[in-house]
Design a protein around this nucleic acid. Sequence first.
DNA 1: GCGACAG
DNA 2: ATCTTGTCGC
Length: 269
Amino acid sequence: MRPVHPEFVPDASLSRAEMERLQRDIAEVAVFEDRFDFDPEAVSAGAGDAEQTQLGGTVSGDDPPVVAGVDQAFAADGEQAVSAIVATRGGEVIERVHAVEPTEIPYVPGLLSFREGGAILSAFEKLAVEPDLAVLDGSGRIHFRQAGIATHVGVTLDVPAIGVAKNLLCGRPRESLDGHLPEGARVAIESDDGVTAPPGTVIGYAYQSRQYDDPETRHVNPLYVSPGHRVSAETTTDLVARLCDGYKLPEPTRLADSYADEVKADIGE
DNA sequence: GCGACAG
DNA sequence: ATCTTGTCGC
C-alpha cells in the first residue's frame, strides 16, 4: 500500500522545528476514536478454531481481520535500517515483506518516526494485502505532540494503527505502576504539561499483558499502548489483550521482530 | 538551572 | 535499537 497523505511522509532532512510542525499537523488529522470496519472481537493471536468447515463451507461468514505487525532492526553499525512487516489473519501468517534503507538521522526522543518511518513506508509499499490494523513498535498518541510513530504511519497510510511500547515516553499514570500489577491490569496514562492535549486526557494505557504468579519471585513490566489512528485508547488496549497470547508482546510484533532479525542476519554476508 | 525522554 | 553467556525459575 502507498501513502494516502504524501505530504506527511517523514523527511529526515527537515529541521527539528519543521519535524515538530509536521507532527502537530499530523495530530490534527489523526482520529483517536474507533473508525474501522472489522470486528475487534474477531482479532486473535494463535490460529483459533474459526477454520472449521462444514460440508465444504466455512462456518463463520468472513475471514478474521488482517493484522500487520511492524518492527525494525539495525545493521552495519546502525547505518542500515531493516523494517519488517508480518501480516496475519486469525493468527496465521499470510504475508511477509521487508525493506532496507540507510538511516539518515540518529535516534532523538520524540522524533523516532523520522528515523524509522522511511524504511517502514518502503516495506508497506511491498505489502500486497490490505491490513485491517497495523501494530507498530513504539508510541502513538503517547507522544509530546500526540504524533508518535504509530500515529505518523497510520495517518500517512490512513490505516487503523496502534502503538505498543515497552517504555513510557511521556504522560502520567493515574495510579502508581510500582509493585506488581496483576495480569490483565490496565492503568490510564493521562496527558500532563508537555503533551499537546487538554490536561487529564487519556492518551493511552499501561497494560499488564503478562505477569508471574508470585510477586516475590519475578515480575514483568507492563506495556504502554496508545492509539495510532482510527482506534480509541480503550479499543487499542482490548486489541493488544487479544493479540498477546500468553506472551508479553503481541503475536504480530513478535513475528515481525524475529523476521527483522532474520533479514539482518542475511544482510551481514 | 533541573528533569525527562519510544526505538 | 545494539553489543552478548549463562543462568534462575516456572
